[in-house]
C-alpha cells in the first residue's frame, strides 16, 4: 500500500511542480470555456442553457490534453521499467497513475468549475449538481483516458490519436454528466444521472487498470 501511495505522491508532485500538467490543464479548461461566450454571444439565457454541456466538454478536452504524457514520460526516462519491477501488480501501478492523474487534473478542474458556472450565469441550484457530477464523472475520464494513454505510449505525437481513441468512449460520461447538472437546474433531486455516473466509475475502476496494464506490458517486452 505504501508503494501505491508513493507512486501517487510522486506523480502528483511532478504534476503540481513547475511545468507540470495541472496548471496547463486548468488554464486550458478556463480558456476553452471563455471562448464559448465569445463565439456564441453574451446573452445570459443562451449561456445558462448551454453551460453544463460547455463545462463538461471543456473538462473532457482538458483531460485528454493532459493524458498523452501520462505514461510516455515514464517510458522515455526509463521509470516505466522501474515501475514494472515494483513489488506491486502492474494493474495497481496503473490504478495509482490514474488516481494521481485525477488528483492533479480532475480535482483542480472540479475546484474551478463553480467559477465557470458563475461566468456562464448558472443559477444557484445548479452548483451542488455540478460539483457532484464532476466528482463522480472525472475519475472515469482519468481511467478511460489511461487506457488510451497506455495504448499510444509508443506513438510519437500520440495526443491526437489518443483523443480519437478515447473521446468516443467518454460519450456516456458526457451525457450523464451534463444530464446531472441539467436535472439539478430543473430542481430534480435524485435523478438517474448521478447513479449512472457512479455505475460507470464502478465498472471502469476494476476494468481500466487491467486494460492499461495489458497495454503497458506490450511496451515492456
Amino acid at each position: 500500500m505504501t508503494v501505491f501511495l508513493r507512486i501517487v505522491v510522486r506523480d502528483v508532485r511532478l504534476a503540481f511542480g513547475q511545468g507540470g500538467a495541472t496548471v496547463l490543464a486548468v488554464v486550458f479548461f478556463l480558456l476553452t470555456v471563455t471562448l464559448f461566450p465569445l463565439g456564441i454571444g453574451p446573452e445570459t439565457g443562451v449561456l445558462r442553457r448551454i453551460a453544463p454541456g460547455v463545462i463538461w466538454v471543456a473538462a473532457l478536452l482538458a483531460a485528454m490534453l493532459s493524458l498523452d504524457r501520462l505514461f510516455q514520460a515514464d517510458l522515455e526516462d526509463g521509470s516505466l521499467d522501474q515501475l514494472a519491477l515494483v513489488p506491486l501488480p502492474l494493474e495497481l501501478v496503473a490504478a495509482a497513475k490514474c488516481l494521481a492523474h485525477w488528483i492533479s487534473t480532475g480535482l483542480p478542474m472540479l475546484a474551478v468549475s463553480p467559477l465557470l458556472g458563475v461566468l456562464l450565469g448558472l443559477n444557484g441550484e445548479a452548483y451542488g449538481g455540478l460539483l457532484l457530477a464532476m466528482a463522480a464523472g472525472t475519475p472515469s475520464l482519468s481511467l478511460m483516458g489511461g487506457i488510451g494513454a497506455a495504448l499510444t505510449v509508443s506513438v510519437r505525437r500520440g495526443g491526437v490519436l489518443l483523443s480519437l481513441l478515447v473521446l468516443p468512449l467518454c460519450v456516456p460520461v458526457l451525457v450523464f454528466g451534463t444530464g446531472a447538472v441539467d436535472s439539478a437546474i430543473a430542481g430534480l433531486e435524485g435523478g438517474a444521472h448521478l447513479p449512472a455516473l457512479a455505475a460507470i466509475l464502478a465498472a471502469a475502476l476494476p476494468l481500466a487498470p487491467w486494460a492499461i496494464a495489458g497495454a503497458l506490458r506490450l511496451n515492456l517486452e
Binding site: I147, L151, P168, L169, V171, F176, A203, A211
Partner: peptide, 19 residues
C-alpha cells in the same frame, strides 16, 4: 485491447445515447 474495450463500452454508449 482497443477493440475489446470498445465492445465493453458499446452497450454503455448505446444506453447513454438512448437517454
Amino acid at each position: 485491447i482497443l477493440a475489446l474495450v470498445g465492445v465493453v463500452n458499446i452497450p454503455i454508449i448505446k444506453f447513454s445515447v438512448d437517454w
